[in-house]
Amino acid sequence: MSVNEVVQEKEKEVEQNWEPKILVFACTWCTYAGADLTGLSRLQYPPNIRILKVPCSGRVNPQFVIKAFQKGVDGVLVAGCHPGDCHYTSGNYFTRRRFLLMRRLMEYIGMEPERFQNRWISAAEAPKFQQVITEMTEEIRALGPNRKLRDDQW
């Protein structure tokens, strides 16, 4: 087998076992607490997400999102308090504006904008958390692995 063939073979194998990997930035005050409540309520959702706690959704620098895609994450969700409910009053308004810009950028570079999502989930909305994660996992699964931005090729 040539080197190329080995690489292709490996690629196929990885592709077959591929599971979407989704990074969730959750603000401490609402969504992180909402995710905790989802657990307390034993609501089940796909095990494809990894939650990263930030003080406020407004802390999420678009740079983190790009970095995550470069590192091979298939989807990124930034989730925080509902507009008007941000613990720091205005953080999520910035999040919302940055989100729109980021989606534009993704379209521009030819990446499916659906890979990047932004949702408001309060500390009481366990069913919503479950639903958002379930739907997003399915959406990303349908899109397939992120190859556009990732640095390393198999």
């Binding site: 407004g58 999420v60 953080g91």
Partner: peptide
């Protein structure tokens, strides 16, 4: 209060939030 909103606004990356740094 440590929300971190300012850190994202800074184009020079001169601002950082302790314990949640870039």
């Amino acid at each position: 209060q440590g929300c971190g909103a300012c850190t994202v606004a800074c184009r020079s990356a001169a601002l950082d939030l302790k314990h949640f740094t870039d």
